[in-house]
Design a protein around this nucleic acid. Structure first.
Lengths: 330, 330
DNA sequence: TTGAAAGCGCTAACAG
DNA sequence: CTGTTAGCGCTTTCAA
């Protein structure tokens, strides 16, 4: 049988209250009893049951982290950072991959609430806003990653997507490209990056055409497919550059182009987004926009912990600076 | 305030016992009361507190997954698969990155036990065997990934590392390489892969020299460093091929070699292990050994669930077949 | 078919 | 300084 606080108390010849006090480092007591209890705990290899302590008011010391896909290098990198920061605070992370699928999003949020997580980090899209409102009403501490929607009163940490889209596109424009295709996702970040794309054209008086903007879901496979689609278009001039809204898609483009004998960057320039590990291992290296993953991950858990501590009213919206990393594809 | 089973019971005009029965789909009752209760649950948006149900005997419906590093593509890929399979069983996964660090391993295992996880999946090395014994004594259902130690009476799912090392090395030998360096890790899998490396030499009557075997920790950076070290050795002939025990290290080697103007595969052949997403995005593509990640992930949770259900005695040891994926680096 | 009540292991007043 | 006790929200036997 599992050893409980009663077993420890009995063996140490004290009451459970006293044991509880040493576990939680609260209250005062004779140094000898404290020592005695600590010894007994070690001896019996006692480990407090967190369920019980959670039930009686303490938190669960666990976060929920919803991401589209933990096997996407960007999300696994930031998850790692979040996990580390949480670990330092004695917290643990339940990771949930949603595939941006509304049903899974809802299900996971429900399950996580049932598990009484102390806070939620949402990096999935939630096109169904209903879930947010439920969460807000439920008063669950939460912070969004990469989803800066000013309509929602939720703390948010993200990279400045508008600026990211802008500098990626400007870089291409500066290199002389006027027919730039963009591969986006159906997410808020992508929408902002698209605005940046337009803005970069606008400041140079270059017209844009929505036919150059494509949409898909993040994966190398889809990037490749999308590339093929782009090069089959007959109603637009063939683009000389492609701005993909993440590295996975950019790499799909590179693979598709390579298969067709299109040279990169000579015949086609490519820019990605995220600066994942993949961007540095392709040849040529992928020009991309980097997000300060470590800073962002840290900030996310800091903000979440503030929320948990009850500074409920000061919803924060924090923007990090994206940075252009020039490599071989441009 | 959170709505509890009492609130539901009161509003539905029944006792909590009855509500509990409909939640858990146990016992019988008049169809009308069941319907009434279900309605009330929906109306009040009631979500059972899992802590309470865990406390009173039901499991926590959560697994712990210890990996060296979730941002390593191999582990994030298998974690994704494990998460999906767990999801299908209504379970959730707490992911912990240990960096193969004994202290973190111990700490995480303790925390996870405190959280009363229903089972543990261990993909970290645990050079300190003490933790295992504690776990075994604690009678925690557990299965190891990629750590087939016949000394330990623990269920295990892994790829046949010996065979993997063997076919990787044989491939190189067949290509005419006689001076093959190996970069390993200080893990059980690596040790088995080293045996395979020796065996592949032995069957061809090619002598081996332990000076060709290097050891480090998985990362691109370390792969590069290790490569540089290898090429500074003066007491051995310079190797014409390197077998790295995972893709990260292999890519480090490629990067190091490229920087030094060493051509791949002409001057140096490279083989990796894992067939991660990285192996297909480098140029030239990385020849590597693939592990059937999807099958393995599925098997792991199947076995774990069996353990949980109490088939405690039939510890399983399951080996999957590795496969050589030939790409451009050999 | 339904409900009362005794836990599950711990925390936090409150009392001594 | 230490112990008693009433919950926390749910499950489960046992009666009714």
């Amino acid at each position: 049988m599992k050893v409980t606080i009663y077993d420890v108390a009995k063996k140490a010849g004290v009451s459970i209250a006293t044991v509880s006090k040493v576990i939680n480092n609260t209250g005062n007591m004779r140094e000898t009893t404290r020592k005695k209890i600590i010894e007994t705990i070690e001896e019996m290899n006692y480990r407090p049951n967190q369920m019980a302590s959670a039930l009686s008011g303490k938190g669960t010391k666990t976060f929920g982290l919803l991401v589209p896909d933990i096997s996407n290098p960007f999300f696994s990198a930031i998850a790692r950072r979040i996990e580390d920061c949480a670990y330092e605070q004695g917290m643990t992370v339940i990771i949930c991959s949603t595939d941006e699928n509304a049903e899974k999003e809802k299900k996971y949020v429900d399950v996580l609430q049932g598990k009484q997580v102390d806070g939620l980090i949402l990096a999935s899209t939630f096109n169904d806003k209903g879930v947010f409102h439920e969460l807000i009403e439920g008063n669950i501490p939460l912070v969004m990653l990469a989803y800066d929607d000013s309509m929602l009163d939720i703390s948010n940490v993200s990279v400045d997507d508008f600026k990211g889209g802008y500098i990626a596109t400007s870089h291409l424009v500066t290199k002389g490209h006027h027919n730039i295709a963009m591969i986006a996702e159906n997410t808020q970040s992508s929408r902002l990056r698209i605005f940046g794309y337009h803005e970069a054209h606008a400041v140079q008086d270059i017209p844009t055409n929505d036919k150059y903007i494509f949409s898909t879901i993040a994966s190398i496979e889809n990037g490749k497919k999308c590339f093929e689609e782009i090069f089959q278009q007959t109603d637009i001039d063939r683009p000389t550059a492609i701005f993909a809204c993440n590295d996975l898609l950019a790499i799909g483009v590179i693979q598709g182009a390579t298969e067709k004998g299109i040279r990169i960057p000579e015949d086609l320039a490519v820019v990605g987004f995220d600066n994942t590990i993949l961007a540095s291992t392709t040849v040529p290296g992928l020009t991309t926009i980097s997000q300060p993953i470590n800073e962002m991950g840290k900030k996310i858990v800091d903000v979440l912990i503030e929320e948990i501590k009850g500074k409920k009213d000061v919803k924060k919206r924090i923007l990090f600076n994206p940075e252009l990393i020039v490599r071989g594809t441009t």
